[in-house]
Write a protein that binds this DNA or RNA. Structure first.
Lengths: 192, 192, 192, 192
DNA sequence: CATGAATGAGTATTCATTCAT
DNA sequence: GATGAATGAATACTCATTCAT
């Protein structure tokens, strides 16, 4: 059923929001509990430790990111359309879920992102990788390790989302189109 | 002038190295002191608080980043050459100073990076901005807000450095050239 | 009558075994419940509190100790035979019920052994006392407060059982005989 | 110098007294700190953890016990005199240091008394052992493993001290003499 | 009777910071 | 300037106990 109890969901959401405000360290479990409307001890029925709560939350966020992309994975579309669709889908996800973006950025560079964490299966990464390999194989992209292309593309989207979030620079629809376009042009194989 | 006492330098280096290992929270002042070979109290002769030590360190790192770029700012060179030179210079800096890269990435996404922090004058940012504005003005780059271009370019370099640092994907000289090349192609104005 | 429900028994046994492993403090009620195969709340149908569970368990153990002795209380036997029989019966009880020995030793020296606890009627103590008073009255033992003799004798048995349990010193049948013999010789009235 | 700082001593004494009242678990570090007149954190300058504080305290107590015996180790005295002297010295120690007696009894039967703890070198035990081996070798005691004799004798003293401490039974000088005498008679080799 | 999710007070421990020497 | 012992507020986590189902 994959059913997540209401309390567990409330705890997830509470942590997500608070981490954005205060960072991992600045977010005591007691605060997570209060915002989630549960007792401090209750969290420990659902999660073994703060570390595990954060770890599970990172999995959840990654799943959401994966889901966000998959909408654009419609294989019947032309490749280039899929590229822009994926770019925009993921961008929109970050735009609409700034807490998730912030959480993830902090998580990646934190001691919570342990070796064990990194070694787990990462469907998000796989999805991206397959897409870019296909792009290389079919001549759309340069002959470069598709993994590199995927990571650069994702970095590009995150940079854009952070820019928008940061708020000092106006990023409208036109700019988004241009940024995605620039990425496509950069990756494209201009030989042919 | 601008002389940094040996102890102060030792404290900076100690913090820089430890933050990479353990993160901000995992790095108590006592540990910084021990690694720097000074007493805990001594740190407070040089810095008002942990926060300020981190803040000053972030300034120092930014200065180093600025210095790294400036080598490529030789205005007599053709613009495109300067672009690749700046790209590579900054990349090399991150490659050779992984502690600094790590520290900065953590810092940017941390509560230590306060509003006040963000509002301070940022010579690094200015330098980048001026360069990209020139590129736009002179027709090398698309007609896009140069600030956006600068941030995308910096994001590209950091993504590359982290990829290399992360170690799972082989990034050799050939790949570096390609990545910079792709960035250039992306930003370039293909109209003309 | 005096019927103990299966669950209650399971809870007693669970606590007894766990206390030996982990001590009172290291034995949370939830652990007792799990090992007993009941829900945490169920324990509170049978016992008012952890304290009372422990208190009742201590009574139960004392009863078992009393029963162990009583087998040797056959008044038709010569007094000396009864002495050795009691000694060995009690020793065997501790040997065969190391959990009980351990529990009792911890209990006696714990804050659970409250004043109220100590003041309750103690049949075990009475039994021992009567036996040693008889021994004194009939000239087998020295003219010493029989309560003292009883406590010394019991201490001797417990010391022996712990030695055996501890495992570093080989205690065989021969040694047991000797220890009991030494105790007898010590208590005996050598005047006559 | 074996010098123990005043604060460390205060912490030891505070713990010793409180454990007697409340047991290990009932004695939070904050309470130890308050009674010792130091801040909670201060304890952790001297001891790594509660466990280590307790462990070190147990060593200290054992040393005191050893010292108490050694006064009676005057080898020029007749063996029997030494026996009674050791018995009384150790008894007096327990009588005058009821906190230590209580602490030790609790400690021995607690999870703090780890395997590692038990395996450490134990001078107290060695001293006792050597004395009883000599007694056996020189024909004063029965031909029984001297280790067993030592443990029984120590158990006898502790039982006596606890009886006295317990307070319900009057133990005067006469009784003490008798108890020690009974122990001697018990251990003695009556063959010769 | 039985359950087990929920509670929240209580505990060991950490760590930025101070200050007497 | 330099030291490091001392501080005490803050935090993750535990567990006896309750109660709605």
């Amino acid at each position: 059923m994959d059913h997540i109890s209401d309390k567990k969901k409330a705890i997830f959401e509470s942590m997500l929001a608070l981490v954005k405000e205060n960072g991992f360290h600045g977010t005591p479990m007691s605060m997570v509990a209060r915002k989630a409307g549960v007792a401090a001890g209750t969290i420990y029925h659902y999660f073994e430790s703060k570390e595990q709560l954060i770890s599970e939350l990172s999995c959840l966020v990654r799943k959401q990111m994966t889901a966000a992309i998959e909408n654009g994975a419609d294989e019947s579309l032309p490749f280039q359309d899929r590229f822009f669709r994926i770019w925009m889908n993921l961008y929109r996800f970050y735009e609409n879920n700034p807490d998730a973006l912030w959480f993830f950025e902090q998580f990646v560079n934190s001691p919570y992102n342990t070796e064990k964490e990194k070694e787990g299966h990462d469907e998000f990464h796989d999805l991206i990788f397959r897409f870019f390999r296909k792009g290389v194989d079919e001549g759309f992209f340069r002959k470069v390790n598709p993994e590199i292309l995927g990571i650069l593309a994702h970095g590009n989207i995150i940079t854009t989302a952070k820019m928008q979030r940061y708020g000092k620079i106006a990023i409208g629809e036109a700019e988004l189109q241009q940024i995605a376009q620039m990425l496509w042009m950069g990756l494209a194989d201009h030989h042919t």
